[in-house]
Every structure is written in structure tokens, then in C-alpha cells.
Design a binder for these strands. Structure first.
Lengths: 227, 227
DNA sequence: GCAAAAGTGTTTGGGATACACCCATGC
DNA sequence: GCATGGGTGTATCCCAAACACTTTTGC
């Protein structure tokens, strides 16, 4: 950052993109937008757009995701973090661009459904995507799996009050493997991340389930790793 | 990335910066450059500079670090990875910039010493730095500590052949805590990352030490976590 | 022989895993 | 009473941590 600013400097295009995860029917889903124009017209892409001078990447993402999908990344998500910055010299037919990507997680994220160009897909069955967005989604999923093991990030996917079975199902959906019920409960309760409420969830012809709440709804690092 | 390119779009300044680590006298060191100009004239900064259109962040970093410090990030480092991308709207007095930072590790990195504006500092006693570069170095150090626990990243700091004591000292320097010799050897040898050579290191009035080599000199993820 | 670093095993505690049955409810 | 999901305990194994003395060399 010590080079002199000569005036002949021309910056690459800067874009921002978001991988927005939520659980739908016990499957990890991601929100995509169908491209209305070339390049990649008709394929599905992460919500994103151009980041102009004067706007931080976070603010640009906020504006763009609001405009394109009707989602407020501060209010409609429980958690967001920067993922990685991709060079796209060869990737984008229009020339050199740099893309700063973010990963966000929430529950019941509502997107603009009026134009039917925004949709949610299970990461296990993604449609054909523009650019290398499939790779970016896979990378985000790996990062998310890693984060579950040393943070309380799972809170981002759950409602305020939830049962232990719902909690376990959320883990299983994201980790894509089954967990042992007794071991899961023993271990998770030992982390002191959640507390009992005095409410029960009654639903269907079976024993009601205790509802729990998270002690904290911001990301925290665990002392001991989990799963 | 679906916004139309209207021509009125102006991109923010894009910069790249590198946190270059190596061990010197069993201390984790970072390479800094004294700023010759305002802003922050006379303070120490990470090697970095402007990334123009047409150049990937990696290529820009390669060119800039070569120009400013005489270091080839591909040949003189054992490992490099992207660290984080910082928005610098308020940070840089010249206005909005986005900085893509990288972390690199090596051994015996030689920098241009002719002008005395490049120097190496122990991370435990950094000088006053420009921008928020002290925070970036701390962040890189944390990332490095985390990476040691689930990868073979330590290879980046060691010569081709090394003793187990040198290996342990490298860990202790980066983790900033002492390790038990017997447990360290047992655990590390169990990882199957290194193999014995038939050479010994003789030095000083004491028993010679067996020299070892890494099986792989590229980053690999461990099955089991370490330390 | 003595200083200096290399090298070497055992014990103990805690967390991870594997595993099967009873409980509370709606119908 | 039966179908459905909720809820619970124990035995085993392996890894982590704690801990001290002998070996080999140069001088």
C-alpha cells in the first residue's frame, strides 16, 4: 500500500456475492437467482452484483441482496461472515473482476417470490449454475461444517425455541450424516449452550418434547470441539 | 453479478498485502516495510500495493513483494494462502479501498537489505504500524495457530532435514507455549507425516540428533487434530 | 568426569463410541 | 391397545496429560 497513486491506476471490477443457507424440510438449502441476461442467461447464480467506490462490501451486499431477492442480510439472517475472495480474470467473459463472497445463515428466510426468478435449492441437488458458483457453494458448505465443530453456529438455523430432536436434525442435515441420539444429547447438553424452558411442544400422537433456548444468539467459540 | 454494466460504474481501489512469517532465533517473525511517504510516513507496514485491472491478486502480490522487498512469493515461500479481505473506507485517508490480504510462511526468507527500509520483527514486539496492520498480523497469527492443529503447515517453517527438537521448538514458537517432549514425539510420530533419515546432526558437546524429513511438502489436512 | 542436549514408557483420567429399552401422548 | 416420537444409562476404548531418568557426545 505504499505505491504512489499516480492517477493512471485503473481498478478491477469489484463484485460481491452471497451464499445464503437455511434448512427447509431438514435439508440444507441455498438461495439462487436465475440470470435474466448474458453471460450465463437462464442459469442460476448466487445473489450478487457490482460494488462501487464509496460502499463497503457489506453495504453493497446489503443493498444488492435487498434489491434482487428482497432479503435484508442484517435483519433476515442470524449470521453472516466473509467467505473468500475470488479472482475472476478468466471466469467472467467481460474481463477481470474480483468477487468478495459472504456466507449467511438463517431460518425461514423469505425472498421475493413475485417474479419467480429467485428460488431455494437443496445443496444436494443444485441446478446448473453460472460462473463457478457450484464450487463456491461447496466451499461454503465445507466451511459451515467446520464451523459447527468449534462454534455455536447452529443457533443460526433454529427458531428461538426448539426441541432436542430438531437440534439434532439440523446437525444431521448440515453434516450429512446420522448422529446417535443419546450421545448427541449428552454431549450437547454438556456444552452449556442451551437451557430448558418450561414449555413443551405437543404435536402428533406421541409424547410431548421439551423446548430449549440458546443462551447466546451470537457466534461463540467452544472450549471443546463438537462432533 | 447480474447488474448491468452501465459504464458509470467506478470501482474502489483494490490493494493487496502480505503477512510473511518465518522463524528467526526461535521466534515468529514478520516482514515489514517502513513507509517512505504519507500517509503514515515512517511507520511500518505490510508489504503491499495497488492491484490494477488485468492482474490477479496473486500476480499483483507477486510483482509488488518482489519490487518492494525482493521476495518471490512463489519461490522463496513454502506456503501462501489468502487470509481475509478488509474494507478500508475509513481506514485509508485517501478514501475507499479494499485490501485482499495473504499469509505466507517460509524459512530463511531473504529480503532486500540494501535500503534498510525492509526489516523483520518478532510478532511479540511489533513496531508502530501503519493502518491497522498490527490487527491483521494478530489475525494471521491466530489463523496460523489454528492451521497447525489440523494440517501439516509446520513443514513451511522447517528446513528439508530437521531434528525432533527443532520441530518441537517451531511449534512452541508459533503456539507461544511449551510442550512436553515425550508426548510431543509420541503424538507427532503417530501422525505419519515425517520419516527418519539415516543422517544425524552433530553439533556441540552432546549426543547427536536424528534428522527427519517430511513425507509431503504441500499442505495436507490431518485425520486427527494435533495439539 | 562433567556439562549439555537426545532419547525413551507408564500410569491415569476423561471424552468418544456403541448400544436398547421404557415413557407419554393421540387416536 | 397401538403407533409414534421423546427420553434415558452403562461399558469400553482410545487419546491426552503428567511425569524422570539414561544415553551419547565434546571438551
Amino acid at each position: 500500500m505504499t505505491m504512489k497513486y499516480t492517477g493512471s491506476y485503473v481498478a478491477p471490477t469489484l463484485t460481491v456475492d452471497a451464499v445464503l443457507f437455511q434448512l427447509i424440510n431438514n435439508e440444507l438449502n441455498v438461495i439462487l437467482i436465475e440470470r435474466p441476461n448474458d453471460p450465463f442467461k437462464g442459469l442460476w447464480a448466487l445473489p450478487g452484483g457490482y460494488n462501487p467506490v464509496g460502499e463497503t462490501t457489506h453495504d453493497a451486499l446489503q443493498r444488492i441482496v435487498q434489491e434482487k431477492a428482497g432479503i435484508n442480510i442484517d435483519k433476515d439472517l442470524s449470521y453472516i461472515e466473509q467467505l473468500y475472495t475470488f479472482d475472476t480474470v478468466a471466469r467472467d467473459p467481460r474481463g477481470h473482476a474480483v468477487s468478495v463472497t459472504y456466507m449467511g445463515c438463517g431460518r425461514n428466510i423469505e425472498w421475493t417470490k413475485s417474479e419467480a426468478h429467485t428460488a431455494s435449492f437443496a445443496v444436494s441437488s443444485l441446478p446448473k449454475t453460472a460462473y463457478d458458483h457450484t464450487d463456491i457453494i461447496r466451499y461454503a458448505h465445507e466451511r459451515l461444517i467446520a464451523k459447527l465443530s468449534y462454534t455455536n453456529a447452529i443457533y443460526a438455523f433454529l427458531p428461538q425455541k426448539f426441541t432436542l430432536t430438531e437440534l439434532q436434525s439440523a446437525y444431521e442435515a448440515i453434516l450429512v450424516r446420522p448422529l446417535d441420539k443419546r450421545n448427541f444429547r449428552k454431549k450437547f447438553l454438556g456444552l452449556n449452550l442451551i437451557r430448558e424452558t418450561d414449555e413443551m411442544k405437543r404435536e402428533g400422537a406421541h409424547r410431548p418434547a421439551r423446548l430449549y433456548m440458546f443462551n447466546s444468539s451470537t457466534l461463540e467459540t467452544l472450549d471443546r470441539s463438537f462432533e
